[in-house]
Design a protein around this nucleic acid. Sequence first.
DNA 1: GCAAGGTC
Length: 862
Amino acid sequence: MKTVLMVAEKPSLAQSIAKILSQGSMSSHKGLNGACSVHEYTGTFAGQPVRFKMTSVCGHVMTLDFLGKYNKWDKVDPAELFSQAPTEKREANPKLNMVKFLQVEGRGCDYIVLWLDCDKEGENICFEVLDAVLPVMNKAHCGEKTVFRARFSSITDTDICNAMARLGEPDHNEALSVDARQELDLRIGCAFTRFQTKYFQGKYGDLDSSLISFGPCQTPTLGFCVERHDKIQSFKPEIYWVLQAKVNTDKDRSLLLDWDRVRVFDREIAQMFLNLTKLEKEAQVEATSKKEKAKQRPLALNTVEMLRVASSSLGMGPQHAMQTAERLYTQGYISYPRTETTHYPENFDLKGSLRQQANHPYWANVVKRLLAEGINRPRKGHDAGDHPPITPMRSATEAELGGDAWRLYEYITRHFIATVSHDCKYLQSTISFRIGPELFTCSGRTVISPGFTEIMPWQSVPLEESLPTCQRGDTFPVGEVKVLEKQTSPPDYLTEAELITLMEKHGIGTDASIPVHINNICQRNYVTVESGRRLKPTNLGIVLVHGYYKIDAELVLPTIRSAVEKQLNLIAQGKADYRQVLGHTLDVFKRKFHYFVDSIAGMDELMEVSFSPLAATGKPLSRCGKCHRFMKYIQAKPSRLHCSHCDETYTLPQNGTIKLYKELRCPLDDFELVLWSSGSRGKSYPLCPYCYNHPPFRDMKKGMGCNECTHPSCQHSLSLLGIGQCVECESGVLVLDPTSGPKWKVACNKCNVVAHCFENAHRVRVSADTCNMCEAALLDVDFNKAKSPLPGDETQHVGCVFCDPVFQELVELKHAASCHPMHRGGPGRRQGRGRGRARRPPGKPNPRRPKDKMSALAAYFV
DNA sequence: GCAAGGTC
């Protein structure tokens, strides 16, 4: 029997589609990467019985990057990134082993059906899948077609079955347009980012951003925030005057009237109108009207709207909201949360979804009534052909979900119920009055039927006192007429919700990437999130955008993306040649880049106002080995040392504190050593600022401290302080931290393993002798008489931390407290290995016998 | 160390 391989874009879709096509009779198992599943069933294909294997990828299989040597910032001129620097496709997520997985599943298959999302990215992934799978599939017989594309616009039985019945071919042009986009984004983004970062970081010491990035989406996003800032700055308040009148409708009731002219900007004119009205005793009713109006129930929920509400009403940032939604989705509480669609599919079981909520403690009443009286047909929304709108999939309580997950779920559910509720109907009554020659109006709203606002009470029409019943010609005594002086007020900073709307409107990013771009400009310290989730640009953000405006406004305008996208669409439609468009667009941006580099002084003038030059920043810390003057320690990210005399900058390890290390010097270059520490619960090591940037030995790399230095005789080096191979990681060596006493530590120089040992010992040294059993270096430990934990009043002991029974009682293995990404996973990652004493049960062999010190060192540098 | 786009 022949086999048909079918591939969807994500695991959830593979499952849904397989369920539909197999009518529920499939068998499933996890693939080798643990992320994707394979669903198998039998059926017919091209008129023959076949075995179907439905699986998926996880988004893009491949990603584009420069060849390794072009990723060295110091060695490559960013201008080379436009054409010379070659790119290569790499696996997007090496941990997923997607190519291998596809090949294992695809080996020996006869046909392939591509079920990737029906957009350009999906078309591109089709070819990524084919590149991986075609070489291992069975060869076609004499020109038989083996590659098919399924095109579907929703995940419904009819749509999926129709797609299966009318298979087509993948569209190469659409895929090519994505290849072009990837290459453009990479080359342009990286060239500008590297140039800006190097240029400004080499000049200013208080930029407080380790990366000054540029991108066709993030830069216009920042541009919106700064545009609002500029409006606020240039705002000039204007004084205006308003006539306000009160009429008495009853003994003790009065009505406030709005002036039909709204306001005037001339005090004398306002005074004139006041004079014309203030002596009038009566207000005459000119007209009354009553109109029934409706407030529409919401459209079905899509991602962008969910993010807007999460930000503006729930106070949750887009990134956080998306993570929360994804968790709710994988736990089965809501449907797939990434969709542009606001229209329910025709066969969507609205009543079924509603019934699930019929016993919910918070909204059972509303739901039961809707079910009994009949639901309202949802409004016609937009069908983007991706996924159904976001809806609850089962009932959940506050106690079950808790916190933000509950708040988001509650919103999604209330929104869903609202979409099948009735519109809110209210009566708008207006009374028009004449006082002297001037007209005034008073209007009020009374609810006829609350409709959906019952489930979304924050949308409800506010309760107002009802207007008096009256008719044309009636008069009321005038209570008071006065002039109010007011001022126009500036707009406020852009809210996140407004920014999302602007991005959506200008096509900046996609539903999935909008949160990422907003997060980016926060992380790069271009904007800060203020109360009410308003985005306030920082000095850096403002200077960047003003600089672009000065040099080349197109770099920051939202049109930068849409203009390129127009070109890309020509490729997708087969109207333009991929190579030509790519070459032409790169050429345009290359020119822009060179012009930008030549004009950078224009942006620099703005930088100078806000930031201080390197030489004027930081405080003196340690001496330069070349001129023996003090270098200044610049704490702002990226933290570094700067010698203003030699005009040299030395980068330092990040995310920790830097102190002078007892004025000790490196024997190689005479620079004073500094001590890096990640905090009291973490680890610390000395480093030479020069060696850290210019590795002294061939077997060392940039960014190594003394605990990784192979100097044969320096007292701070790995050679003298190293003990033996790390108990957890492959390549690390445990090194004594000579500064850690009296709570002594031995820490791995690669991973975050730390052994706390010999508390209160007053001296710990690494001996030249090694252990007979494991060949690790012995430690020579001295205790004070009063505090010695050693048996029999001893104060000194020499032994092996791994094998010596006396020491094993005094050593405790831990993980350094650290937020560094390298150390993610931390404690508890490995069962039975992470915490507790570094002690093996008696009689059992050491599971990872430490190698002798020199072979550990040798292995370390391979 | 960089972009933006998929998704886990």
